[in-house]
Design a protein around this nucleic acid. Sequence first.
DNA 1: GGTATTATTGCAATTGAGTTGCAATAAGTC
DNA 2: GACTTATTGCAACTCAATTGCAATAATACC
Lengths: 133, 133
Amino acid sequence: MILIKEKLSSQGYRMTKPRQAIFANLDHEPQSVAEISDRLKKQKIKIDKVTIYRTLTQFVKLGIVEETQFKDKISVYELADQEHHHHVICDNCGKIEDICLDEKILVAAAKKNSSFKIKSHHLEFFGLCKKCC
Amino acid sequence: MILIKEKLSSQGYRMTKPRQAIFANLDHEPQSVAEISDRLKKQKIKIDKVTIYRTLTQFVKLGIVEETQFKDKISVYELADQEHHHHVICDNCGKIEDICLDEKILVAAAKKNSSFKIKSHHLEFFGLCKKCC
DNA sequence: GGTATTATTGCAATTGAGTTGCAATAAGTC
DNA sequence: GACTTATTGCAACTCAATTGCAATAATACC
Ligand SMILES: [Mn+2]
Ligand SMILES: [Mn+2]
Ligand SMILES: [Zn+2]
Ligand SMILES: [Zn+2]
């Protein structure tokens, strides 16, 4: 928590109540803006969606949050303080599971086979969770 | 070309001028609806965007076209008559390069490490093309 | 503490991709 | 050619995300 205050003020940004509340409602599971908004509403915290968008965009820039999008194209956000990992998404109910993979070999192969200077990659898996199987 | 007429009529669909023109403007490089629309305009072929959307959705269902989305969230479409492959996208200019990788090992590892019944995956690489390097 | 400065917020309006309803049009069939 | 019905184009709409701007609140300075 102090960590993010540091990160903010070091860039001339301010630690505000909305930013604190949004940060407190982030998770290691990716969430959409709508989901974060709902969580805040349940806690009787009134924050406009625009503020959530702007805050998350800023958190991404500061490396506090990671943004991804799956098949449905809407952005989802999760805390960035975890080791590099990927997700398995249920085609039926949308449930998300983390998955750790050793993809070094694959990335190395990609770098070798491509004329591009490869910097990053997206990798997600889709299927059915236990309940939906 | 006859191929797609078969596929269409076998499902009770019709081969129309718009569908022919849209098919003729598909490529092995992923294109957005806007890009396809522009190509058609340059050829003085007047087809509404809605028709392009509906046609592509149908082509996807028939297995003629593959739909993907990269970082910018808009859908892109490419011909499906090619072997399974992935893409490298330039972060600067959007150029796309095909890349073939042997990901069997990775997919097997994912299936092993996950509680889900994995059916498919998305894998894309990002970086800088030669020009933008 | 109180005041000045300026980052931040909330609201309303806007953008842009994609979808839907429906009447007019054009394939396929006989 | 006439009939049936899939398809098209237009307009209206949805929904995530962005933008402009005046009101508000966090920091800095006294
Ligand atoms: Mn995760
Ligand atoms: Mn390709
Ligand atoms: Zn499920
Ligand atoms: Zn480039």
